[in-house]
Computed example of a mutant assay.
Amino acid sequence: MKREKDMDRDQVLKVVCECVAVVLGVAEDELTENTHLRAEYDVDSLELTEMGARLESRFDIRLEMEDLTYFQTLGDVVARMQQRIPAEPVTA
């Protein structure tokens, strides 16, 4: 996975769509930056948690519960991922 802080929005969106599509069981091409997770797909807290786990794994980041509850649209997810992607790998 490309780890640069300057990973462009389209690249982040593609990864987000891949993760979300798996959780929702839909085709990636159904999802856009304007897709509203709750209104269009009735996403519940369990699905948000699963999405969060997939995003953490793909981007090698740590998300908090407040991040997950912030997500309304895929654009929100992309914006938060861009904020969270470190310039350097996180060491534990």
Rank of each mutant, 00 (worst) to 15 (best):
A79K: 08
I85V: 13
D60N: 14
L24Y: 03
H36L: 08
I61T: 10
A27Y: 02
L46D: 00
K14C: 13
V22D: 05
D76K: 03
R84Q: 15
Q11C: 04
I61P: 07
K14M: 12
L31C: 01
A39Y: 10
A21G: 07
L37I: 08
V15I: 14
D44W: 01
G75S: 15
C19M: 06
V20D: 10
M65F: 13
E18D: 10
E28F: 09
D6Y: 07
V16T: 01
V20M: 08
K14R: 12
D76V: 04
V90S: 07
M7Q: 09
M65S: 14
V90H: 06
L63H: 04
R62M: 13
L55T: 01
E30Y: 02
S57P: 02
L31E: 07
F59W: 06
T35K: 01
E4N: 09
V16W: 01
E56P: 00
M81P: 15
T69S: 04
A39V: 09
V16Y: 02
C19Q: 03
L68Q: 05
S45Q: 03
E50N: 13
A53D: 12
D10E: 11
M1D: 07
R54M: 06
T49S: 13
V20P: 12
R54K: 11
L48R: 10
V90I: 10
P89Y: 04
S57Y: 09
V12L: 07
R84D: 00
D10I: 07
A87E: 15
T49G: 14
A39M: 09
E64R: 11
T35Q: 00
L68A: 07
V23T: 09
D67P: 02
A27M: 07
T35H: 00
L13Q: 01
D60Y: 09
Q72K: 13
A53E: 15
P86G: 13
E33I: 08
V16P: 12
I61G: 06
C17V: 03
E47F: 08
M1H: 13
D29F: 01
F59R: 12
E28N: 06
L63M: 10
R3F: 10
L37D: 09
E30D: 06
D10Y: 01
E50P: 07
V15Y: 03
T49W: 08
E50D: 14
H36G: 07
L55I: 02
V12R: 00
P89G: 03
E28I: 03
S57V: 08
E50S: 13
Q82T: 06
L24Q: 06
L74V: 05
V16E: 06
L48G: 00
A87D: 14
